[in-house]
Simulated assay, not measured.
Amino acid sequence: MNEQQGFSVAGIPTIVFCIALAAIAGAFYVGMVSGPAPWMGLAGAGVMGVTALMLKGFFQVAPNEGQVLQLFGKYTGTVRHEGLRWTNPFYSRRRVSLRVRNFESGKLKVNDSDGNPIEIAAVVVWQVVDTAEAVFCVDDYENFATIQSESALRQMAQNYPYDAHDDGKPALRSHGEVINNHLRDEIQARLDKAGMQVIEARISHLAYAQEIAQAMLQRQQASAIVAARERIVEGAVGMVAMALDKLRQQGVVELDEERKAAMVSNLLVVLCGDRATQPVVNAGTLYGG
Rank of each mutant, 00 (worst) to 15 (best):
E119R: 14
C137N: 13
G106A: 11
F90G: 05
L84V: 14
S149E: 11
Y141F: 12
E119C: 12
F72A: 07
V68N: 05
Y162V: 15
A145M: 14
F90S: 11
Q67M: 15
P170L: 06
V123H: 03
P170N: 08
W86N: 14
E150D: 07
L108Q: 15
L108D: 13
P63Y: 05
E104G: 08
V138W: 03
G73S: 06
G46P: 10
V124Q: 03
Y141T: 08
S151Q: 07
G46V: 12
M156A: 06
T76W: 01
A52I: 15
A164N: 07
V79D: 07
L98Q: 11
V128H: 02
N180S: 07
L183Y: 00
N111M: 07
I187P: 00
R101Y: 13
D112E: 12
E150H: 01
N111D: 13
Y162R: 12
G115Y: 13
N180Q: 08
T131N: 04
L153I: 04
D140V: 06
Q70N: 10
D114P: 13
K109A: 13
T87D: 01
W126K: 05
S174C: 01
R85I: 09
N143W: 01
S97C: 10
N159F: 03
H182N: 05
Q127P: 15
N143D: 10
V135Q: 04
A152Q: 02
V79H: 06
A171D: 06
R94S: 14
N111L: 13
S92L: 11
F90R: 14
G115M: 11
T146K: 15
N88G: 04
A45N: 01
N143V: 12
L153Y: 00
F58H: 05
T87E: 01
G115V: 09
Q148T: 14
L53V: 00
Q67I: 12
S149D: 09
A45H: 00
T87H: 02
A132M: 12
P63F: 04
A164M: 07
V47L: 13
W86S: 11
